[in-house]
Amino acid sequence: MRKHILSFAIVFMIAFGMNIVTVHAEKTGFYGYYYSDGYTCCDFKGTGIEKVVEIPSDVTQLHIFMFFWERSLEKIIVPSNVKVVKARCFYGCENLKYIVFKGDVEIEENAIVLCKNLKAISAPMNSGAYRYAKEHGIRVVTSPEPCFEKGKVYCLKGDKVYQDVVNNIDDITWSSSNSKVAEVGNDGTVKVKKAGKAKIAATVAGTTVSYTIVAYARTEENRIKQAKKEEISNGKTTIQKLKNTHDWMIRNISYDHKARNKIRNNECCPSESNTTRSALLKNKAMCLGYARTYKKILDNLKVPCIIVSGRVGYEGHAWNMVKLNGKWYNVDVTWDDPDRNNDQGQLWIEYKYFLKSTAYMSQYRNQYFAYKNYPRCTSTKYDLVTKF
Rank of each mutant, 00 (worst) to 15 (best):
K3V: 12
F8T: 09
V11F: 12
N19T: 14
V21F: 11
Y34S: 08
D37K: 13
C42E: 02
G46C: 05
G48V: 03
E54Q: 08
T60D: 02
H63W: 05
F68V: 03
L73C: 12
E74I: 07
K75D: 07
I76H: 07
N81R: 10
V85T: 13
K86L: 08
Y91I: 01
V100T: 04
G103T: 05
I112R: 03
I112N: 03
A120V: 00
I121C: 03
I121F: 09
P124H: 04
M125R: 06
N126C: 06
R131Q: 14
Y132G: 00
K134S: 06
H136N: 15
E145C: 11
F148G: 10
F148Q: 11
G158I: 03
Y162E: 05
D164E: 10
D171I: 01
I172H: 02
N186F: 09
V192P: 05
K194W: 04
I200A: 01
A215D: 08
E220Y: 10
N222D: 05
Q226S: 03
A227D: 01
K229E: 07
E231C: 03
T237W: 05
T238H: 04
Q240A: 06
N244Y: 02
N244F: 01
S254C: 10
Y255T: 07
N261Y: 10
N265D: 11
N265T: 11
S271Y: 09
S278P: 04
K282A: 10
A285W: 11
L288I: 14
Y294P: 05
Y294L: 07
K296E: 13
V308P: 12
G310H: 15
Y314R: 15
H317I: 12
G326F: 04
K327L: 05
W328F: 07
Y329K: 05
T334K: 04
P338H: 00
Q346D: 02
L347F: 00
K352F: 03
F354P: 03
N366R: 15
Y368H: 13
Y371G: 06
T378A: 15
S379K: 13
L384W: 11
V385S: 13
V385A: 13
